[in-house]
Amino acid sequence: MEKNLEEIFQDKIDREIRIEPKDWMPEKYRQTLIRQISQHAHSEIVGMLPEGNWITRAPNLRRKSILLAKVQDEAGHGLYLYSAAETLGISRDEMYEQLHSGKAKYSSIFNYPTLSWADMGAIGWLVDGAAIMNQVPLCRSSFGPYARAMVRVCKEESFHQRQGFEILLTLSKGSEAQRRMAQDAIDRWWWPSVMMFGPKDDESPNSLLSMKWKIKRFSNDELRQKFVDICAEQVKILGLTLPDPDLKWNEERGHYDFGAINWDEFWQVVQGNGPCNKERLGARKKAWEDGAWVREAANAYAEKRKNRQSVNAA
């Protein structure tokens, strides 16, 4: 029986029929999705913090509004994703618990600090750019609620990258100090962005199964190459450079060659040794703990009101 169900399941996947929450699915598929979707949701929520730093310091009213709207969107994206994961039978509180205890991971990029206004540009251009490249194929992910959440996320995300590039473009046309700020931001955010696509294909153990199940559609290295190719061209418009002396167009491959990635740094940050891991997690925990009495009060009030209504009705 079990095997039969598994065959039907894989057949649906192969025929591009989306899996919905109440459909039979292998336990491993469910667990893989919960891990990936919740990790994705956590990344959105933790990702609010580095940019949130600059909302109160944005240099003019237009930028202030845009940045606030953008960071708020990320809260929305986290919410869509938590909701998608909840259809698989895990609660949001359980996911938070996993985040707060360090059991669940989030994208390492958010453990880097935002040191200048230009970082808002570099994050929009590079970090959101890399995220979009990862996310667009997820709109066709085999799990229906995840795919639908990603459609919504991608639709909203498109302004995020554009506003980032616009910030850098304005800085690149500005004073010497502004150009320095922009170049420094790119220098700091480039390699962590390249690492956002995850370990190399041959060191990414979960990838193969995820591809078979069409949870993901392209390998880490494929997406990474595409990202490098696009950015290497776009940076020319800024008149700035990417911090990689080995970056060079390879006519034969039809792609840019790029330098070696510092995987030691990558794993160090994943393991909690990035510059801001403790601050980021600390801020999330604090918000959650400080909010406990608020959530309890709303519950208590809703309960009281329900009771009063039933008394009145009786």
């Binding site: 919410l79 869509y80 909701s83 909840e86 949001r92 639908r148 959440a149 919504r152 959530r295 709303a298 519950n299 009030y301 809703a302 009101r305 329900k306």
Partner: peptide
């Protein structure tokens, strides 16, 4: 369109 949490 999706779901969310609320007390009432």
């Amino acid at each position: 369109v999706g779901s969310l949490h609320a007390a009432d």
